[in-house]
Design a protein around this nucleic acid. Structure first.
Length: 662
DNA sequence: TCCATCACTTAGAAGGATCACC
DNA sequence: GGTGATCCTTCTAAGTGATGGA
């Protein structure tokens, strides 16, 4: 099977224009003036302290039109203005259309995700290329020629030889078992012990290949780049309704060895190659369907416009479905994202009521209600994930709030001068450790003691609760409320409040950005977004310190020079020496600035050693807060969001003014 | 009500691209 | 221009939560 048949097919017009949407403007918008909060962990907001600001009606002269709300539940939209979506006939294709402001248009309701969808299908992994004959595999010290099927799987292992994975028993066991399935019966009979396999030459070969790729000439690299660009243009976009939209992952995952996170029982298993007959295509009936590679067929072509995916297949490790979907910059993802933050803002309006309610529920006669209330308190206070049940033995043993077990918490009536301390220690999503010691309210503490009575360490702490019960309850408290909304809400409100607290209007830009990063960091800590410290961390820190020291020396030199030039000018009293003083002054200033920049950088980096800022920035922080902050303090938005992020948050950059309140 | 399935969001690692410095 | 550090993009695993059928 050819992965990408070399020829570029001329793109054909589809000649279809989906029905134009009528654009409408909502009549109003809510703004909220939140209380400032002092600490990282959130306290109460007042329920009723938001005010109402009427929406402007867009006119031709308005520079910034007020946009509609993404969240239909908030209030009905009144159509104040309609705009026809251009009927996308000939102009849609290849040239990048001018930036489309989908957020100014009306959304679909009733679960329809699109009216027209056309795409080219996925790009398959390149077929296996057998190793050159000089690259040998050895078994028990002797050369052995492998069948292509067995050889391919062997190369997967060889490519990972440097990785810790290949030293793990489970990984090796799973790999060997799956590898044997690909062997001929002769190979199977002969290769019985993984320890006797020598993949060294293969590994060397791949390393050399990778080196060769790096040391290619400029021209060669450019050629590769152009080819990638060509594939991107051909397969990396679809037409959804009237717009050419970028696809996120148009390449099918290549075969390889499964790399689970943490202690995953399936690590090392063979992830099989996906073929056209595994693929389900989703597109509209009246579109030009993607062609399967010559001589092959798709599993199915369907036309389901209640879903957003273009391509799907079932993966063989967990049996789960994988999808090809659109890029975060697309309308379909952006609308959802915007809506997510609007839901979180609605929570802000009623979070006080909800908090009062769960505090009451701590006293309930019913165990299930107490458990629900304590769990919700943790989700709110500590930004824990919901914690769905998982199938035992199928995945790594990780938990979230509802699935926390007795063994994951310790209770201290008194600890380090604080009363009622709970110590959490468990593995969360991606097997990232959650460790936290927090003082809680007495009632919570007493409840926890009660929940733990007569239980074994591996019993569920909340045995009368699961995520579905919890979410059902939340749904009753607020339309659209689920456990994860609390994470979004608490992350965003924390950012907003930390920015208020930390930003000093008189600071220069690097110092303000340090403040921003610190606010961002507070959120990342709250959400427990961690990263492995970069391998080069210590060294790069040292380098930076060396630079700082050098800069300090430079500064004292410059100061000395300034001093002597001043003395000189005093004696000479001529223009030339006055000028010299000025020049020296400027030099000192410049060096001071440079020094400060370096010091700020060092602080930022040190504080960021094990913390990942990206996840919260991308998924939890209402981008309008950051945009408003940039506008308020004259920071170019490019300093906060890179190009990709600006594309994802185009809606927020366009609509948020400096007075935006989450 | 329970469970499986499906769709979609959220997550950190890896590797490539770009930048800063000498 | 070379090199190492840093930034950005890609990759795909691992969550959440809705839904529908038994």
């Amino acid at each position: 099977m050819k992965s990408l048949d070399g020829k570029v097919k001329k793109e054909k017009e589809n000649g279809f224009a989906s029905p134009p949407h009528m654009k409408s403007e909502p009549e109003d918008d809510f703004y909220h003036s939140p209380r400032q909060e002092k600490t990282l962990k959130r306290e109460r907001d007042n329920d009723d302290d938001f005010d109402f600001k009427p929406k402007k009606i867009k006119t031709e002269n308005d520079k910034k039109p007020k946009k509609r709300k993404p969240d239909e539940d908030v209030k009905p939209n009144k159509k104040t203005k309609t705009k026809k979506v251009a009927d996308g006939k000939k102009r849609i294709k290849n040239e990048p259309e001018e930036k489309w402001k989908w957020w100014e248009e009306e959304r679909y309701t009733d679960g329809v995700k699109w009216r027209f969808l056309e795409h080219k299908g996925p790009v398959f992994a390149p077929p296996y290329e057998p190793l050159p004959s000089h690259v040998k595999f050895y078994y028990d010290g002797k050369v052995m020629k492998l069948s292509p099927e067995a050889e391919e799987v062997a190369t997967f292992f060889a490519k990972m030889l440097d990785h810790e994975y290949t030293t793990k028993d489970i990984f090796r066991k799973n790999f060997f078992k799956d590898w044997r399935k690909e062997m001929t019966s002769e190979e199977k009979a002969k290769l019985t012990d993984l320890k006797k396999c020598n993949f060294g030459e293969m590994a060397e070969y791949f390393k050399a290949q990778s080196e060769a790729r790096k040391s290619k000439t400029k021209e060669e690299k450019l050629k590769i780049k152009e080819e990638n660009e060509r594939i991107l243009q051909q397969y990396g976009f679809c037409i959804m309704d009237n717009h050419r939209e970028r696809i996120a992952n148009f390449r099918i995952e290549p075969p390889g060895l499964f790399r689970g996170r943490g202690d995953h029982p399936k690590m090392g298993m063979l992830k099989r190659r996906i073929r056209p007959q595994d693929i389900i295509i989703n597109c509209s009936k009246d579109s030009k369907y993607p062609e399967p590679p010559p001589g092959t067929k798709w599993k199915e072509v369907r036309h389901d416009n209640k879903v957003t995916w273009l391509v799907s297949w079932t993966e063989n490790i967990q049996g789960s479905i994988k999808y090809i979907m659109l890029n975060p910059s697309s309308r379909i993802k952006g609308e959802k994202d915007w809506q997510k933050y609007e839901t979180a803002r609605r929570l802000k309006k009623c979070v006080d009521r909800i908090r009062n309610q769960y505090r009451e529920d701590w006293k309930s006669k019913e165990m299930r209600i107490r458990q629900r209330a304590v769990a919700l308190y943790f989700i709110d206070k500590l930004a824990l994930r919901a914690g769905n049940e998982k199938e035992e033995g199928e995945t790594a043993d990780t938990v979230g709030c509802c699935s926390v077990r007795v063994e994951h918490i310790k209770l201290y009536p008194e600890n380090e001068g604080q009363e009622f301390v709970v110590e959490f220690d468990f593995l969360g999503k991606d097997s990232i450790r959650y460790y936290n010691k927090v003082p809680v309210e007495k009632r919570v503490f007493k409840n926890l003691q009660l929940f733990m009575e007569n239980k074994e360490p591996d019993d569920d702490l909340f045995d009368r609760l699961n995520t579905s019960i919890l979410n059902k309850h939340l749904q009753e408290l607020m339309d659209g409320l689920t456990a994860k909304v609390f994470r979004t809400y608490n992350a965003s409100i924390t950012l907003q409040q930390q920015l208020k607290e930390l930003t000093n209007g008189d600071d220069n830009i690097p110092a303000k950005i340090l403040s921003y990063n610190r606010a961002n960091r507070a959120v990342a800590i709250l959400c427990n977004h961690q990263r492995a410290p970069p391998k080069t961390f210590e060294k790069s820190m040292q380098n930076l310190q060396t630079k700082i020291d050098a800069k300090r020396d430079q500064l004292s030199d410059a100061k000395r020079e300034l001093k002597s030039s001043k003395a000189d000018a005093k004696v000479r009293r001529d223009e030339k020496s006055k000028k010299t003083v000025e020049t020296k002054k400027k030099a000192v200033q410049r060096i001071e600035e440079q020094l400060m920049k370096l010091e700020v950088q060092a602080t930022d980096r040190e504080e960021n050693k094990q913390i990942a800022l990206g996840t919260s920035k991308l998924n939890y922080l209402d981008p309008r807060i950051s945009v408003a902050w940039c506008k308020k303090f004259g920071i170019p938005v490019e300093k906060i969001y890179n190009k990709t992020q600006r594309e994802k948050f185009a809606w927020a950059i366009d609509m948020a003014e400096k007075d935006f309140e989450f």
